[in-house]
Amino acid sequence: MALSVMLCACLAGCKQPPGPRYVPDEAAAARGRAAIERVGCGACHAIPGIGWPRGRTGPSLDGFRDIGLIAGALPNTPANLAAFVRNAPRVKPGSTMPAMPLSEEESRDVAAYLYGLDDE
């Protein structure tokens, strides 16, 4: 009895693990991949799933959902990521990455693709 009370107390003390930062959306990710190829993100970034180009001017985008800050500046949320890929200088003044020719919807799709990339 005492044991089970203690166990319950322990369990109650544990927080739920944080929920996933994104909801997988394969259709959006597929559209995002097409947009990535259309605007040529690979010219500066190595992106898993994009065979060529794998540019080195910017950082690799491997495992984006596990990154702490976007470009070392913004909390890593899908909304921030979408805003960043669409118009980086607006959300991070001084960013080397320029505004890209993406619609708002496309930028959300690109974020969906990048979040789908797992480190493992």
């Binding site: 259309r38 605007v39 040529g40 540019g55 001017t57």
Partner: peptide, 25 residues
């Protein structure tokens, strides 16, 4: 295009091409 018909032409790809065209081509 940039890089002889291989990259779309926008400011981002232009920066990437000038900065490190050897990683692209």
């Amino acid at each position: 295009t940039l890089g002889a018909g291989i990259l779309p032409n926008n400011r981002g790809t232009m920066i990437g091409w000038i900065g490190d065209s050897q990683s692209i081509k």
